[in-house]
Write a protein that binds this DNA or RNA. Structure first.
Length: 270
DNA sequence: CTACGTACCTGCCAGC
DNA sequence: TGCTGGCAGGTACGTA
């Protein structure tokens, strides 16, 4: 999926079109996603003004006076703005209808994404225990250092845990560890404070760069206008198993870590 | 609490 | 030319 940069690119593209719009309802063609789409989505949204489109980790949050719509793109989700009369294709599961004749169309072949409603009041349970935003002030190497003490877990899995920091998935964890020169297999608890400081700086740089490039399109991710993200051209490790390391020329190695494909340079990363 | 493994779902590609 | 197995950007849950 869509990791933080892809979700942020989506948000940035959608916000000016959605904020302040009065919705006229919703069309649900497939109600079973990772969780059930709210059965009353159409009536909940009809006649309501979408005030603000926010993001928390990989969740998009559409705020209304009477509550909040949560959208998650899972592994293969994307959102596009289209005319309502454009024919839906096989994995176009939900349309959110805008007053101006367009719709926000949610497409997700694998259906690991979700659309949920949260009534105003407390944070949704899925958001409650999330770690810091990597691009916010409260994220730092010190946060990583403190949380990692005593942990035997591989640092890559530790980084991909949304309770550690949100938004860093398989691509950006792989890339950040490569750029920081840290072996992804190393126990999180055995990395120094100084190296975590470097890593935090690298993570922020990689994510910012990826957002500026429109995210990474491998196959399923598209921007709301149908365009691609171009960060794929900047990938230095992800997807490059067996190819030469751009730093030392050694052969990049692939290994599964916590069930996820991992690529690293056995000579540069320690 | 931590650290796995597994399940959810569809599409695509390599290999037989 | 099919078929099959394995793999894909995520995450929550069950089990030791």
């Amino acid at each position: 999926m869509p990791e933080l940069p892809e979700v942020e690119v989506t948000r940035l593209a959608l916000a000016p079109h959605l904020e302040g719009q009065t919705l006229t309802g919703a069309v649900v063609r497939q109600k079973k996603l990772r969780q059930w789409v709210p059965p009353d989505l159409d009536s909940r949204l009809r006649g309501r003004v979408l005030n603000r489109l926010d993001r928390r980790g990989k969740y998009l949050l559409a705020d209304f006076v009477h509550g909040q719509l949560l959208l998650h793109l899972g592994m293969s989700g994307s959102l596009r703005l289209l005319p309502q009369d454009m024919a839906a294709t096989v994995h176009d599961h939900v349309d959110i209808l805008l007053g101006d004749g367009r719709c926000l169309r949610f497409r997700d072949p694998r259906r690991f994404g979700l659309i949920l409603w949260n009534t105003e009041g407390a944070a949704h349970p899925l958001l409650r225990d999330l770690g810091p935003e990597p691009l916010a002030e409260n994220f730092s190497g010190q946060v990583l250092y403190r949380r990692s003490r005593g942990r035997q877990q591989a640092v890559k899995s530790f980084l991909m845990d949304s309770h550690t920091v949100v938004g860093v998935g398989n691509i950006y964890a792989t890339e950040s560890l490569f750029r920081a020169g840290i072996d992804p297999r190393r126990a999180a608890g055995r990395i120094s404070a100084a190296r975590y400081d470097d890593l935090a700086v690298v993570i922020r740089a990689v994510l910012r760069e990826a957002i500026a490039q429109g995210g990474t399109t491998l196959r399923d991710f598209f921007q709301p206008d149908g365009g691609n993200g171009y960060f794929r051209l900047s990938l230095q490790a992800y997807g490059r198993e067996g190819e030469p390391c751009i730093r030392c020329g050694g052969t990049l190695r692939g290994q599964r870590l916590g069930g996820r494909a991992t690529v690293f340079c056995p000579y540069c990363q320690h």
